[in-house]
Design a binder for these strands. Sequence first.
RNA 1: GGCUCCGUAGCUUAACUGGAUAGAGCACCGCACUACGGAUGCGGAGGUUCGGGGUUCGAAUCCCUGCGGAGUCACCA
Length: 594
Amino acid sequence: MKIVQIIQSETRDACEKLFSFTPQDRQIQVQLTNKDFEGQLTVVVFPLTKQAKLAPEACGEKLGQYFAEHVPEITGYNIIKGFLNLTIADRYWSDAVQQALKTGNYGFSEPDSKPLVLVEYSSPNTNKPLHLGHLRNIFLGYSVAEILKAAGHQVKKVQIINDRGIHICKSMVAWKHFGKGETPESSDMKGDKLVGKYYVAFDRRHKAEIAEEMEDGLTKEEAEKNAPIMREAQQMLQRWEQKDPEVVELWQKMNGWVYKGFDETYAKMGVDFDHLYYESETYLKGKQEVARGLEEGIFFQKEDGSVWIDLSDEGLDQKLLQRSDGTAVYMTQDIGTAIQRNDDYPQISKVVYTVGNEQEYHFKVLFAILKKLGYEWAENCHHLSYGMVELPEGKMKSREGTVVDADDLMDEMIGSAQSIAEELGKLEGMSEEEQQVLYHQIGLAALKYFLLKVDAKKNMLFDPVESIDFNGNTGPFLQYAHARISSLLRKAGDNAQKNVSENISLIEAERQLALKIDRFPDVLSEAANNQSPAELANFLYELVKDYNHFYQVVPVLKEENEDLRAFRIQLSKATAVILKKGLKLLGIESPQQM
RNA sequence: GGCUCCGUAGCUUAACUGGAUAGAGCACCGCACUACGGAUGCGGAGGUUCGGGGUUCGAAUCCCUGCGGAGUCACCA
């Protein structure tokens, strides 16, 4: 049994025997001992004092005595104010580390032992390339999915591709006008970039036309709608919904270019999906639901034919579900997609939508609508919301043109990794190809770790220079620690297999490191519960810091006492194992040499 | 304006969900080590946790209020 659980259950027993009451779980608080005091784990006695009818110190003293007498794993205690600090037996730590090494997939739960969770992430529009904002989304969604898997859930990674709508029509119209038949091949351009170029071209023309119309006396709003190129895009959307062959063919062609480009980008990111959903395949289901809701009086129709829902009784507004010209909007297809997924996977226990916090309102509305439509599983839908990524120069927003392209950023990170690695010159014996792989691993680690270590709900600032700095709380710093331990383990040979005698005496640095190793399974399940890669990332950083400290203060391979040497090698190995698995859950590779 | 989220050292951030003297990294100053990989470790300085009230044994965390920032309230997605 884990030491934390032992302490919890012994505290309960002690309360029953000493004070004649049974505490609630929440009254038993075990936390890490503050580093200024002796001990590794601490029981907070305040919550118990009232029912124990004792002052905090006296209460702690009684508990401490009880532990010293009844619990072999506890060898000492001290009380500071209302905190009972416990010193755990060295024997426990050495056993725990050996146990961790013997356990296959240490920290992970039995695969598929928990119900199915769908994790949606990325969800791109097919009218432009992926950018910095997508990176946070994609790394976050991927990592949450991997963490849930590690915690034993069945997981499907899904993506909804927003492949239809006015946005793609804009690119299509612009390509028809200005494209002169340009293709990714003819221009040697990635397909998503090419289509993005025409989206920008549309916008430029649209703005010019608005200016003209406004000179003719129209208001800005009127001009925006009335601009010829915009009207053309809207007509194209209607023709698309009517399955006009010419429009459909162009749509397929341009989307095909985009998918090819996305696939390349996803491959570079190292992420994947189990099931792709296309808005073009689910929006009709959404429209059916809109029709049904209208019939049943859940929705209502305005004079112009547009369909709405009134959610003002829930503190929300009225929301459009279908345009007056009969075409579908974003909400329409999201309704259809949600239903489709539950049809595909009836055993779903939860759906996680990884989408930026600017869409919080949208998802509130969506879930409310699904509930009104009578779908009880609406309760299981969860919006995993994350904050904006800003850059040092100012905010990054796609509509304002200051986008940072995902491919460009990744390439830049890989380039930085290369120049730093070359300068350090430690890659002897690696082939050119291996080196390229390594630069990629390091560059992506810097990027992923930096984006994931911050609490998802916060807006964050991405500083490319700081992220690749290999000191401090960064991905490459963790990778380096792993590479260094790997090197040490290569030299250690089979020493790690040796059983350690029972009576070694440890120093505090070793206990602290063992404590971290012991806690890993709990941290992992907490990260899963909270859908928080950041918790895992910060734990790994703490682990590495404790390891580096340990590594600095005692010899490992040069230790003369055989038992101690073996134990230290095991500590190193357990650290490396956890580090590698933990980083993997963040989507980060752990090279052997760097 | 309504609603939601955020505000912690110069900068980037953490705080086990209400627990000890609010931890770290970067930058700055200093130190250790023939180092098992220095992409290291140790120390110093740097905080009225945006201001003001309240709740309690105890508040960065919960409540009220003011200020500041972001998002949203589209026949965009």
